[in-house]
């Protein structure tokens, strides 16, 4: 008897181990929390150094992005992220890693058509749809407050 596509789908589901969801979520919660605590700590530091609220927010974001870029370049970030999962992908660290990693990877194809053309390979969708959503929100906001 020939196994059908439907039967095989069930066989594959049974044979394939699932991701350890509980542990993954726990690790993501702890690591994501740690990133936020770090951000909060940096915020307090910059505020103490005399930065106003708006400048503090910008400085915190810049620091986390720079830190991620350096850790990515050193080949450490992906090892942390393998455990942290969403904990490092969802915060701004994930975006910074998504820009830095293709920039490194495609260096071998040159500065223009390698790094330049591929740097937003992963982050591109965020920019496109993030920007799109911002425009849509702006239009709605403008209509409501006209």
């Amino acid at each position: 008897m020939q196994t059908s596509t439907e039967q095989y789908k069930t066989m594959v589901e049974t044979a394939s181990p699932n991701s350890p969801l509980a542990i993954n979520m726990l690790k993501a919660f702890a690591c994501g929390g740690a990133v936020c605590v770090l951000g909060e700590g940096l915020g307090l530091l910059y505020a103490r150094l005399g930065a106003d609220d708006e400048r503090t927010r910008t400085l915190v974001a810049i620091t986390l992005i720079a830190l991620t870029a350096v850790l990515t370049a050193l080949g450490v970030f992906d090892k942390i992220a393998r455990h942290a999962g969403a904990g490092t992908i969802v915060p701004i660290t994930g975006f910074a890693n998504a820009v830095t990693s293709p920039a490194m990877e495609f260096q071998s194809e040159g500065r223009i058509l390698g790094t330049g053309a591929n740097i937003f390979k992963l982050a591109g969708p965020v920019l496109v749809y993030g920007g799109g959503a911002a425009v849509l929100y702006g239009v709605i906001y403008w209509l409501m407050h006209r």
Partner: peptide, 16 residues
């Protein structure tokens, strides 16, 4: 590089 993500991208690999 060709089939998946850049090497240093921080993704998780499923057990399969």
């Amino acid at each position: 590089k060709q089939f998946r993500q850049p090497l240093e991208y921080g993704g998780q690999r499923p057990p399969t």
